[in-house]
Design a protein around this nucleic acid. Structure first.
Lengths: 368, 368
DNA sequence: AAAGAAATCGAAATCGTTTTCTACAAGAAA
DNA sequence: TTTCTTGTAGAAAACGATTTCGATTTCTTT
């Protein structure tokens, strides 16, 4: 982080000589910024003509255009966005609703959205709803007042979706939890496939007793992950082992506790598929406390591919959730909707994939 | 809400005597949301009266107020924010400029800003500048068009500060790198004290040879950290040990490399103060590769208190940088400025403190 | 009962831009 | 020359709210 401060400060040494704008404009306007009317008067043309120049319309002669452009440049004129928004009915803003801001999981989504919006010249309005549907609804209601061009909602509640559909605003859902039948534009990831791939990977290494943590959550993604796990076992001709399916609310603590319980089993698993990376961190902690080595005595697979999985010890093998693309895709779709276009693919699912690092190996009995 | 629009339109359709007015109003209102004018007509009052009710002004009689409020409620009216912004000169928006969005360091700052703005009923516009001064300047220029009420800039460049001061907009700087003489409103943390405390902590444990990683960065915070380290050594009557002051650009990789070099020294240190948590993660990796145990064979202290330091193995002792408060304080100050108040304390410095976990112990020779 | 004070309400102006829609000029076609 | 385009420019009307300020009405006071 501070690394970049370095080169950043370097380029600082070339201190750009900024063209100082004429202070004459001050005379005309109280807050110092000229309006179209003033520019028009100074240029000796009418207000609409200036507007036409600003908007690149054709019906302005070249000399007039150049004169107006010169004055605009000279006085450093920028048009009042509020007035423009009022007249055009567009605000240049897009709202993004996240459950939480202090959860690094959402960061790349935010980043992806920000990238696309920046390219499109739109500004990003960010709100955290703290996982409360009423907050979501409240926010959607308050931005229904022409103050946004479109909305992106991560993990929307049912109520939020209803409210969105009612509002008539363009919107795209990210990580929609809703039923499969929902028709609203949305972007998701292949959680089922991720669960399947992770489990299959462990099976291929020779593991037979593979635990899963995170059974309880009613969230769509969680349900898909465990379904993928079960399907992989099934495809390998193995029976389900209910004692190896642990509760877990996808926190570090629940990963820790689930692992302790698993280790007390008469026949503990040789591998743990930890539902997500946070739980995997808890798994590591429990294993370390009990003096068990990863991957020699226990293989571990995570899900999400959070940044810190790279610096875990050993680096965690995990399923990559393409969160940046989630954000980019959703934002791109929303831009289309705002533009009045139809989406040929309103419901997009982005692929996950396995990131192989050093937390897995064949089970001990096969190693020897 | 659509239900109400329905009945709204229905009642309009059946109102013959107001037909001419109605058709006009309908023609101009494409998206079906009522305007103040329509509410006023339905309530049988004037436009200003509705406005007064909306703004809680005193000169409206109770019966009138109640009637208008009922109609507003019934029709689910929300006022057009663009129109309001134009007239009042306030947008209800605050811009936050961050160097990057994918850096978890900034997350709590963002969270703190978001909290305060939410309480104040303002919306947060987020932009990443990618550490480029020209991006900062470009953004500041484009929001100078009355489209924001105030700006918060994290790690502002010199040029950005100049631009801000020229713009006349309210602004507060976070982590200002500038010289001590700068008078602009800003919030920082006590980096020097953090460096001093971390080093003193290690000295008290009995360490004599304490390394520091991150010498090279010209960033204000980095300079203060190493200055604190040196001052602590000095206060303990120890000489500076240049061979123990390592270069480092505050990435995981540089922590790793610096540690390898330190271990090759004829007399390696017994403790490493790692400049920041990311470098500490690299230190852990190098030590683990060389088979050295933390804290038994090497004590490590980080800086920042990133979330993952808690789940490092062992949990990292580090200096807490109060980033949430950084965001909250800056936002609170900005709110004051927007409100036209004077700041009695324009330049705030927030205290850091040591978070003691399990990565430090007395050096080996003293243990035995 | 008359006059003054206070409460209540609305007409009209305003914020700064965009969008018709009309007017006029110059050039092309008849 | 007359008529018809074509190209330019501007007058005026929105967009939807807030604010000012004058006009009523109601309430006190003497």
């Amino acid at each position: 982080m501070i690394a970049q401060w370095l080169c950043y400060n370097r380029s600082e040494t070339f201190r750009g000589e900024q063209a100082q704008h004429k202070s004459m404009a001050r005379r005309h306007n109280i807050d110092g910024r000229p309006t179209i009317a003033q520019i028009a008067r100074i240029a000796g043309v009418s207000v609409p003509t200036v507007s036409k120049v600003l908007n690149g319309r054709a019906d302005v002669s070249l000399p007039t255009r150049e004169k107006v452009e010169r004055i605009i440049e000279e006085y450093g004129f920028v048009r009042n966005r509020a007035a423009r928004a009022l007249r055009k009915g567009k605000t240049g803003l897009v709202d993004l609703l996240l459950p939480r801001l202090d959860d690094e999981y959402y960061l790349p989504i935010l980043e992806g959205v920000a990238q696309v919006l920046r390219e499109a010249g739109l500004r990003l309005v960010l709100t955290a709803t703290d996982y409360k549907p009423e907050e979501e609804v409240r926010w959607i209601t308050t931005v229904t007042d022409h103050s946004t061009d479109g909305i992106l909602v991560v993990l929307p509640s049912e109520r939020a979706i209803e409210q969105l559909e009612r509002s008539g605003l363009p919107f795209v859902l990210i990580h929609n939890q809703g039923g499969l039948q929902a028709t609203a534009p949305s972007v998701r990831i292949t959680s089922w496939e991720g669960g399947f791939v992770a489990t299959t990977y462990l099976l291929r290494l020779g593991h037979q007793r593979i635990a899963y943590i995170g059974k309880t959550s009613p969230a769509r993604d969680a349900i898909e992950r465990i379904a993928g796990y079960r399907a992989a076992l099934d495809a390998a001709g193995l029976p389900l082992m209910p004692e190896l399916e642990c509760d877990g609310d996808f926190t570090e603590a629940s990963g820790y506790q689930a692992t302790l319980r698993l280790l007390e089993l008469p026949e503990p698993p040789t591998a743990i598929f930890a539902g997500n990376d946070r739980q995997a961190a808890g798994v590591y902690r429990a294993l370390h406390e009990r003096g068990l080595a990863v991957p020699e005595q226990m293989s571990v697979v995570g899900f999400d591919n959070l940044p810190y999985t790279e610096i875990m010890n050993p680096p965690l093998t995990t399923i990559h959730a393409p969160r940046l693309e989630l954000g980019r895709t959703a934002a791109t779709m929303l831009l289309r909707l705002i533009n009045g276009e139809q989406l040929e693919m309103p419901r997009v699912v982005l692929p996950t994939h396995l990131v192989e690092r050093q937390s897995c190996s064949p089970p001990r009995q096969q190693q020897e």
